[in-house]
Structure formats: C-alpha cells, structure tokens
Design a binder for these strands. Structure first.
Lengths: 105, 105
DNA sequence: TATAAAGACAACCATTTGGTTGTGCAAATA
DNA sequence: TATTTGCACAACCAAATGGTTGTCTTTATA
C-alpha cells in the first residue's frame, strides 16, 4: 500500500466533503470549519492538512488564524474520469442499438 | 468510524477505477479483469465485492464464471456533488466581480 | 498584565484497508 | 475419468485512516 494522496481519496471522506462544501461558499478558519462538525479541532486540522496536501485548499495566515480557501480546479480530474467512463458505457449501448437496428432490416 | 461503502469510497482506490474503466467497455469475468493487473485474483475479487456492495457492478453467473457488468448510474452522485461545489465556488467570484464592477462606477 | 483563543506538534489507539496464502468445490476440458 | 480452471471462503498481516488527548507557542482580549 502506497500512501495515496489524490483528489479521489480527498473527497472519499464525508467530513472532507462537508469541509469542501462549506469552503466553496467562502474562506473560513479552522475553528469556524469545525464549529458544527462534532469532532475535535485537531481532527479537523488533520482533514485540512490532507486537503492542503493535494491542492484542494490554500492557507493564508491572518494573525493567529489560519484562513482556508478552496481551490476546486482539481475537481476537474474527477469529472473528467467520470465523464470518460460514462462515455464508454454509453457507447456500448449505442453499438448494441446499431446492431439491433441492422438485424431488423 | 462507521463502515462507509458509498460511490465516493468506491472510486477512491486506483485499482477500482481501472476495473470500472475496463468494465465500462463491456462485461468481463473476474479472471479477465485481473489479467493485466499484477495482483492476486483474490485481491481483485475483494475489489469486485466492494463495487458490488455499493451497486456499481452487477453479477450474473455463467457456468462457473462470474460475469461482472458496470452500472454507472451511481456515478451521478459524484458529478452532482462536484457540480454543486463548483457552482457555489464560481458564484463567489461572480459576486466579487459584481462588487468590483459596482465600485468602478 | 493575566487570561483566553487559535492552532501546531506529538503520542497514542482502534478499525479499516488492501493485500497475501491456503483450502475446497463445482464446472469445463483433455 | 482425471485434470485443470474459476472462484468462494477463511485466516492472516502490515500499513493507512480517522479519531483521541496533552503540551506548547503565539496572538488577542478583558
């Protein structure tokens, strides 16, 4: 097992998806992110670290606060993969349709 | 920690993404899936089990073979979430744009 | 200035994950 | 019929994951 730290793994955890959703509406510091998340601040900080490591969050210091900002461009990798798989999947049915159409003649 | 078995977790593993990609081009049995995957057949079978448990694969017996077929409708959940997050994220910039435009006057 | 708040860092822990090997059985094939 | 093939089931294992608590430093605030 190699340590994978990519976008797919980043969004695999429900807590991290909530964090991303919240940050997509505007920057927040770590305490604010964890406010209604029933989890220690340290646990939140760990999730933030993972998201930062795979480029989905950028931080900037503001006094004693660490303000987190979402960087959602990375999510394209996910949509691209999903789209590609669905495309191939749909082509199968189209091929089948064409085959069925050709046998009808 | 609760056992999560959803689409997001299903596609988090690179091997499972390869399996889904291959199956999106047509049904295969477990041996065929594992053919160029440098991993024991049992490991493949475990991945198949996970994909089946979250509805991304359906099986049908054919003699002694277990033929796997992709069910990619589930992937909508992923695209939906990504789209929603990106939408909110884009709205932030639009709001900023409007604000900047209004101060320019 | 004394205290509270934000968060970094480390140690620890249980569970999950992703793999392995071995055994056994049913179906296909020589 | 004897052998091979496809795969299920179980036991096992190391590493990763997702959480905890405690200590410490720095920055705000009463």
């Amino acid at each position: 097992m190699i340590e994978r730290r990519d976008v797919f793994q980043a969004i695999a955890d429900p807590t991290r998806r909530i964090i991303i959703s919240r940050l997509s509406q505007g920057p927040l510091n770590i305490t604010q992110i964890g406010e209604d998340l029933d989890m220690s601040k340290q646990a939140i900080a760990k999730h933030i670290k993972i998201l930062r490591e795979c480029g989905m969050i950028v931080m900037n210091q503001k006094g004693r606060e660490q303000v987190c900002e979402a960087q959602l461009a990375q999510l394209d990798e996910v949509t691209d993969w999903v789209m590609q798989s669905r495309k191939l999947w749909n082509q199968r049915f189209e091929k089948l349709d064409r085959f069925l159409a050709s046998t009808k003649k």
